[in-house]
Amino acid sequence: MNAILDIKGLRACLRGRSENAYVIDGLDLTVQEGEVVALVGESGSGKSMTAFSILQLLPPAIHITDGTILLGGHDVMKMDVRTLRQVRGTQASIVFQEPMTSLNPLMTVERQIAEMLLIHGKATRRTAPGKVIELLELVRMPDAKRRAKQYPHNLSGGLRQRAMIALALACEPRLLIADEPTTALDVTIQQQILKLLLDLRDRLGMAILLITHDLGVVAEMADRVAVMYAGRIVEHGPVVELLEAPRHPYTHGLLSCLPAEHADPDERLTEIPGLPPQPGSIRQGCPFAPRCPRSDAICTEVEPAMTSDGASHYKCHHPWTAP
């Protein structure tokens, strides 16, 4: 297998604050061709910033200080503006939680997708309209011909999400980065969209980096999972191992917070006490130590390195044992 995405030692710093405000801090992540990798973690852990780094779309206040990001074997940080523009869309594209961040409210769905095709030389003025309908049918937009002529605000949330996915797929990217693509949608619509993504993976062979905070979505979709905390990957592994036998106390905590199917409703839910750290606030040791039920003296002194045990990989001095 070949890696479509290979990130090594990535660090990104928030400018203008104290020097160590790293929002991404030593992140390693790979996605193989055709693979669905889920990136999970609490709000503010750096998931979206990781996604933006891959396409060099970081906000101006944040800049990359260390590491490499290989997309299809090429380092995106060494690309000039023209190459980057080419890579966005053909190698990788992003869909966001809020479709209106990528859809232009003043253009019909057809026109936006057609422009994308024309810019990348994937269609001519003559062939574009037919290709647009093909794409809308690919994402199962009901009544595609009529919808193509509509503006984004004429569409429901679920249909808008489909239009955005069609736009993202226009240039047949090898990697689709989906940042909370269904968080704003109802469960029944969410299910349709997620199933569509899996279908497209099977038919087009594209890889998906799925960013989500929902472990249910992870369980349904992912081949592999990477758990993010304070700008780092603290555990990663195949979905079954990771969810059934989490080794890192943070992964373990996230799973035990969920209301269990058959638990006694009078039982209290397990909490993870406290809050995730602000960028820059962790100076040494394990970033999870202030909230960790297993932490001891060494945890607050020494940041654990990534350890591998079979298919599981984790950064922890006192991991849960494999069953």
Binding site: Q191, D214, V218, A219, M221, V239, L243, L255
Partner: peptide
């Protein structure tokens, strides 16, 4: 969505 990884979409 059910966090059981053996229930696939």
């Amino acid at each position: 969505p059910d966090p059981n990884p053996r229930n696939r979409l």
